[in-house]
Amino acid sequence: MSLLYFPGCTLKNKARNFDASTLEVFSALGVELAELERWNCCGTVFSMADDDLMLQLAPLRNLLRAEQQGGGELLVPCSMCYNTLRRAQRFAAADPERLGRIRDFMYDEPSAYRGDVEVRHPLAYLRDRVGLERVKQAVERPLGGLRLGAYYGCLLLRPSELAVDDPARPRVMEDLIAALGAEPVEFGQRAECCGAYQTLSWRAVTLRRTYEILGSACAAGARALLTSCPLCAYNLDQMQREAVKSYPDLCAMPVLYFTELMVIAMGLGWKPEWSALHEVDPQPVLDAAGA
């Protein structure tokens, strides 16, 4: 079967390992992803001012493009894109007058925005539609009990209405880790913010968040972290080299996209160029699978 797919900007450059591994994993599980023919930035970071409709156009235009390409479900692996698209959809739907103004502004589009595309995150899709049992059956190189921490951050869980799992006690990523033959490790900071865009502004915030999140995972025994957000990945992985200067006892560990872990465990072939996109070498994770 085929499913509409929205990669988002960063999956086309710094996180192309996330893009490629998502496509490979879904293909191996019998779901061919069809990238939207025309898409734009998701609108990165949902804009919360009640009167600013202009900043909702980016996400809504993407949903309109999905409608124009047949609609139905849209798979969005980047946590940020997923969150922004779904919140914008709810924002527009909350008020008919607001929805009318947004539609009117996009008068140059060949069709009017309806708002009925279902935005899905791969974690929820794997759990609900593919089934983690099927993922388990597809594992060829089980991860040998490697202890891994699932880092959810903010965007998969908040606001609650669009959480991919129980926002108070998520387990979907832990269940995936277990299905892949590794050992999930719960840690206190798994749903706390990575500092997000503060990396370019209040850098100290991100450096401390990186240190605390890694420390929390480390104390729980995790050897690597999993994420589904390229911004979390940048702050937790690339920022380690700078954070260690402020925090010499920082616990270094690799950070992988959950789809990369699936590629490893399902024996789909890790691409050597993906390693270069990581700051901390993911080799220990590959070694655990004997890959």
Binding site: K14, A15, C41, T44, S47, Y197, T199, S201, L231, Y234
Partner: peptide, 28 residues
């Protein structure tokens, strides 16, 4: 604004991904 686009040219942010640039500019 809290941030000027010119500031993100800082070499410390040389490898900043688009998701970081866009989100920081959107908010700041």
């Amino acid at each position: 604004g809290r941030l000027s686009p010119a500031e993100v040219v800082d070499p410390a942010c040389a490898d900043a991904p688009p998701i970081l640039l866009v989100s920081a500019m959107r908010k700041l």
